[in-house]
Design a protein around this nucleic acid. Sequence first.
DNA 1: AATACAATCCGTGTATACAAAATACACAAA
DNA 2: TTTGTGTATTTTGTATACACGGATTGTATT
Lengths: 227, 227
Amino acid sequence: MQDNLQVNMDEFLPLRDVVFNTLRQAILTGELKPGERLMEIHLANRLGVSRTPIREAIRKLELEGLVIMIPRRGAEVAKITEKSLQDVLEVRRALDALSVELACERISEEELIQLKNACDEFEKATHTKDPKKIAKADVELHDIIVKATGNSRLVQMVNNLSEQMYRYRFEYIKDASKHQRLIDEHRVIYESIRNKDKTTASETAKLHIDNQETSVMEQIHSERKIK
Amino acid sequence: MQDNLQVNMDEFLPLRDVVFNTLRQAILTGELKPGERLMEIHLANRLGVSRTPIREAIRKLELEGLVIMIPRRGAEVAKITEKSLQDVLEVRRALDALSVELACERISEEELIQLKNACDEFEKATHTKDPKKIAKADVELHDIIVKATGNSRLVQMVNNLSEQMYRYRFEYIKDASKHQRLIDEHRVIYESIRNKDKTTASETAKLHIDNQETSVMEQIHSERKIK
DNA sequence: AATACAATCCGTGTATACAAAATACACAAA
DNA sequence: TTTGTGTATTTTGTATACACGGATTGTATT
C-alpha cells in the first residue's frame, strides 16, 4: 500500500463515513490489494484518526463483502475469485434485466430525454479515449435506467454489485475495439425502453452483461498468465 | 422494549457479533419497533457490555438497512413503509425466479431428494398449525433451492431480502386458508425443477411471491385500520 | 400568558487505556 | 539442523474518558 491514501476532509461527515468511503475506494481501485491485511493502528495513523472510526468503517466493509474478518486476527481485503465474479455477474444480469423491464413501465418523459442524452454523451466519451470519462458516462447512463425503476432497493443492490466489478470494468472499458458494440447496445436499450418493448430491452441488457462477463474472464485469465 | 432482550452467551463469538445477532433478531421479530431509538448506553447496560460492541453492531445493521442513522442523534429502527416492502418484493420476485431457473440447471440428485422431503415436511408442518414450525419448514425448503444454485452471492442477497419480510411473512403463514395453495405451489416448483422446466418453475416462483405480496399488503392495510 | 434566552442535561462522536490472544523471535536441547 | 519452549511484541477486543452538539427545561421579560 502506498502512502497516497488520504482522508478527504472536504466532506462534512462523521469520520467513520469518511474512512469507510476512503477504504472502499482504495479497495475498489486496487490500491489496497486482495489479501492485504487491514491493521487498525496503521490505518489510524495513516489517516490521522483514532482506531474507533477505522473499526466502524471495517464493520461496514465486512457486511458489504469487501473485507473478510478472521477472528482474533483482524480484517483483510477480500480475495476476488473467478467464481465470485461469475456469481456477481449472474445476479447482476437478472437485476439489470429487471431494471430495464421496470423502466419500460415507469420511465418519465424527462428521464427518457436524459437517457437519450446519456447515450450521446457516452458515444462522445468514447471518442476522447479517456477511460475515466468513458466509465463515468457509462455509470451515468446505467444510473438513469435503474433510477427510472423508482425502486430504491434495486438501485442500492445494483450499485453494490457494480462496485464489486469496478476494477475489471475499468480495464474492459479501455478496450477501444469494444466501443462501437457498447454504443449500439446502449442505443438498442434506449429505443426499446422508449417503445416499451420489454422483451428486446431485457434481452439486450442481458447481452450487455454477457459481453462484460466474457471480457472480464478473458482479462483474469491473461492476468494469471502474466503472474 | 421489554427486558427479555438478552445476549446469548452460548456462542463463542466477538461481542459485536453477538450484539448484532441479538439486535437483528429483536428488530425482525418486532421486539424493537420501527422508529424506536437505539441508545447506545441503554443497550449497553441492558446487554451488559460496553458501548463499543453496540456501536459496531449498529454499523452493520445500518448497512443492512434495518436501522437508519440520524446525524448527531444516533440510530433508530428503520420504518417499514408499504413502498419499501413492495420494492423488496419486486427484487425478490426476480431473484426467486432466477434461483429456480438456475436450480433447474444445477441441482444435484441429493438436493432434489432433500427438496422433495422439504415439500413433505412443509405439508406435515401445516397440519400441526404451529406457525413457527410452518415458517421453519418454509424457510428450509426455499433455502434448499437457492443453495442449489451454487451462487453464494445470490444466497446472501435472497436471505437479506427475506429478512425484511420476516414479521409479515410470519402472519401470512398463520393463515390456514392459504396453506393448501402453498403446498401445491411448492409441489409444482419441485416437479418443474425435477423436469428442468425453467419456464414453469420461474412462473410459479413469481406467482408464489405475488401471493405473498397480496397477503402482506392486505395485512398492512388492516393493521392501519386497527390503529 | 407567551416568548426569548440561558443553563443544564443527555447522547453521540472520537480518542485512549487496558486486557487477552496470537504471532514472532530467540535460545536451548536433541 | 531441527524442534521445542519461553518471552517479547504486536494486534485485536473491550471498556472508559472526554468533548461537542442538540434538546430540554426553567426563568425572566414583555
